[in-house]
Computed example of a mutant assay.
Amino acid sequence: MSNTVFCRKYQQELEALPFPPLPGEKGAEIQRTVSRQAWEEWQALQTRLINEKHLNMLDPETRAYLMEQMERFLDNRDTDQAEGYVPPSS
Rank of each mutant, 00 (worst) to 15 (best):
56 N>D: 15
6 F>N: 09
30 I>R: 06
70 M>G: 00
54 H>D: 08
67 M>S: 11
41 E>D: 12
68 E>L: 10
62 T>E: 06
79 T>N: 01
78 D>F: 11
66 L>F: 07
41 E>V: 03
1 M>S: 12
33 T>H: 07
29 E>N: 15
44 A>F: 07
49 L>S: 02
22 L>H: 10
23 P>W: 01
77 R>K: 15
42 W>E: 02
1 M>C: 09
20 P>F: 06
69 Q>I: 04
44 A>K: 07
52 E>G: 02
63 R>A: 07
49 L>F: 02
39 W>E: 03
5 V>F: 03
75 D>F: 07
15 E>I: 09
40 E>Q: 11
79 T>G: 01
49 L>K: 00
62 T>Y: 03
77 R>V: 05
47 T>Q: 14
90 S>E: 14
52 E>F: 09
66 L>Q: 06
70 M>Y: 02
80 D>I: 02
13 E>F: 14
81 Q>N: 14
8 R>K: 11
66 L>A: 06
7 C>I: 03
12 Q>T: 13
69 Q>P: 06
5 V>Q: 02
28 A>W: 00
48 R>T: 00
50 I>W: 00
8 R>N: 09
59 D>K: 06
46 Q>R: 15
36 R>W: 09
7 C>A: 06
32 R>E: 13
45 L>A: 07
16 A>Q: 04
38 A>W: 00
6 F>S: 08
77 R>M: 13
69 Q>R: 08
43 Q>D: 13
66 L>V: 05
6 F>A: 01
5 V>G: 03
69 Q>G: 05
